[in-house]
Amino acid sequence: MNHFHDWAYLAFAFAGLTMATVVTRGSFFMLPARFALPAQVERALRYAPACALTAIIAQGVLTRDHQPYLTISNYQWWALLAGALVFIKTRNMIAMITVGMTVFTVLRIWA
């Protein structure tokens, strides 16, 4: 079954995701003034978003069918690498996506 057509699944998912938006953005707006973050917790919070994004990207690009997918013919990986280099150099998101998708399409068709 395609989960994108399962409306009950999506409705529950979106309800929880909306909560995730409000609970994090509202955290310290809603909490009483006496609550403050311990320094160590604040440090951990600083790294968590980058790590979560990395985990998603790594599993998306470097795995296939629940297996590591670390071969030369992993075109998504080369495209992502090319795009990342462009972004580090230019800080231009459009340039990164254009280069990444072009590299991927070229490899997919001709390699």
Partner: peptide, 13 residues
């Protein structure tokens, strides 16, 4: 989603 959103906790603080 909560993990990706944790940066907002720091903003809110």
């Amino acid at each position: 989603a909560l993990l990706v959103n944790l940066r907002f906790v720091i903003f809110a603080a």
